[in-house]
Design a protein around this nucleic acid. Structure first.
Lengths: 151, 151
DNA sequence: TATTGTTATACTCTATAACTATA
DNA sequence: TATAGTTATAGAGTATAACAATA
């Protein structure tokens, strides 16, 4: 058994997806945290801004899913981000239960302000790993998310 | 620019490593959380047990790093796990600042009790993604961790 | 002086349930 | 009845600093 040890048939932790994904993320986040320390938003708010910028105005359920957050967490965060001027919210006229969230120019400015840092971090990693491997990794992560997500 | 949009040169969120790694992990954790709900330990304690089982008795700094935890968090968790009987701690006679943590038979039993579930989850994912892709992904994650980690 | 681990503190997110408003 | 979002609450981890013991 190539991927298991003899004790219980468990994989090496480096071959355990939950642990491998966590370790990889922690390693990558080092550089990002330095960048975010220079910005007015934390990691979670950054993710919300990135998602809103990408998918456009959306109801909160969609934002929560894309940003990997629970709705109660998102509610709290959006209240803060609305007060900070980074997002607006308005009731969906077509379904008044829904609240549509939108990034503001000020929110976009936060992303803009760190676009170069962000690109530099990506370039540095590319210089170490190679573009092909990074692309392959991102492809596999997308596929994993899709395959593991629908169960 | 193939990997960037026109607004700020930021990558699509699916091509952002921090976000892609988080989404992939959340998707994978679904099945693991069901398994852990049947066990007496939470996700973090499971990780600590897995690490201790793999690397053997180690000081807390090494455990913290392998389990992606801060030392203050580990201190609290180990106190609980010691009280629950899953680990023991003893001062390192060679360097009395260090405290060596060891998994107990009872801790190993927790791992044993879910080895089959764990294997089944891995098999299901393998059936969807294919063994080769999963192996390639794990290889890339290990390399990413190494390359991004030393900066 | 530097390192290992502990304690304390403030903050943030998770997880769940109960609730409101709308469909 | 079901869904979107809010509120409340308990629990757990993050992050940092100050501290004790040991090297």
């Amino acid at each position: 058994m190539a991927e298991t040890d003899e004790k219980h048939g468990l994989r090496r932790t480096a071959r355990s997806l939950p642990i491998a994904l966590l370790r990889a993320r922690e390693a990558v986040m080092g550089a990002f945290r330095e960048m975010l320390a220079q910005s007015p938003v934390n990691e979670t708010k950054w993710r919300v801004l990135r998602v809103l910028d990408e998918i456009g105005p959306q109801d909160q359920k969609a934002v929560a899913e894309a940003a990997c957050l629970l709705l109660p967490s998102l509610t709290r965060i959006l209240h803060a981000m609305e007060a900070e001027g980074y997002v607006t919210r308005e009731t969906d006229p077509a379904d008044r239960r829904r609240s549509i969230v939108r990034i503001t120019p000020s929110g976009r400015a936060v992303l803009d302000a760190h676009a170069e840092d962000s690109a530099r971090i990506a370039r540095e990693l590319e210089a170490r790993m190679g573009r092909e491997k990074l692309d392959a990794l991102l492809d596999l992560l997308e596929e994993l998310q899709e395959q593991a997500g629908r169960r």
